[in-house]
Amino acid sequence: MTEPAVSFAGVSRHFGTIRAVDGVDLEIAPGEFFAMLGPSGSGKTTCLRLIAGFDQPTDGSIRIFGEAVEGVPPYRRAVNTVFQDYALFPHMSVADNVAYGLMVRGVGKRARREKAEEMLSLVKLSGFGDRKPAQLSGGQRQRVALARALINAPKVVLLDEPLGALDLKLREEMQVELRTLHRQLGLTFVFVTHDQGEALSMADRVAVFNDGRIVQVGTPTEIYEQPRTRFVADFVGSSNVIEAALLSTLGVSARGAASLRPERIRICASVVEVPEGWLSLSATVADVLYQGAVRRVVTQLAGGGRIAVSDAAHGAVSVAPGAQAILAFEPAALHWLEQA
């Protein structure tokens, strides 16, 4: 078996009584595009900083390509970071920013300039070398930060909320571009995000963080289709959690609570329309959110609790707030959650 690119063994980082990272075990394969997903304060950024070397674990050990990095300063790790605020040096030109990693290693001026131009063309910014960072747009600065992180040919590239500061359109463009770049370079990318859509669409594998621990690691499909806990079900794709008590009224032998994805529910006009073998619930429509291709219907159950339904806006049974709706779903759509 090949050595993992990054491995965490029982890694903790405590700040006083705050357990920012608490006993994390993790293996990231070489060449993988790995996402650390979680709400703010869940420990994902601290994990990234531990890999970069800006912070040291209070417990456990981290290995980068098999090499223990305990006490190794950031400038001696084959790891480079794209910072959330890009952290471009404001007093240097774009080319000097990109070439900084070579400059401090003593590479000659001409070689530096050439390599920087090469990296800039890689991120589609040829000819921007003489500008100052302040003269660039947010998206362009992001690319410069990326080019700067790649110039030292790191073994692992760390990206801290790389697309967080960009607007939606640019973000979607950059998602595609980052994936292309990742394939092209064959490097290990580790990125931190709080945006589940971003994690699911870009990463090969996702680790979901909560309260300093990893709740689940898996491919985007696994994370989405088989959330391990209530937290993952809710955080990734905002699933409905159906309690065991409600399930037993439907005649399902419940093994605890289950998650039910909004798009697996069909709204029927009446009980006779419920397909053979499907389960059904009656609920009151609370709100209908039209989102273009899809609509999101929020319904209120008589016994309390809400269920969200997501279906194609076109050709669906029309519903209005206040109306009664029959929610139908296959028993197989229920995914059992662990008690955690």
Partner: peptide
């Protein structure tokens, strides 16, 4: 931004180089 200093260290500059090329300017 404090990440300027971290960025410098991350790119391979030691403390003296970071002072010389980032902090001082």
């Amino acid at each position: 931004s404090p990440s300027l200093i971290e960025a410098s260290m991350d790119l391979g500059a030691d403390a003296f180089q970071t002072f010389r090329y980032v902090l001082l300017p």
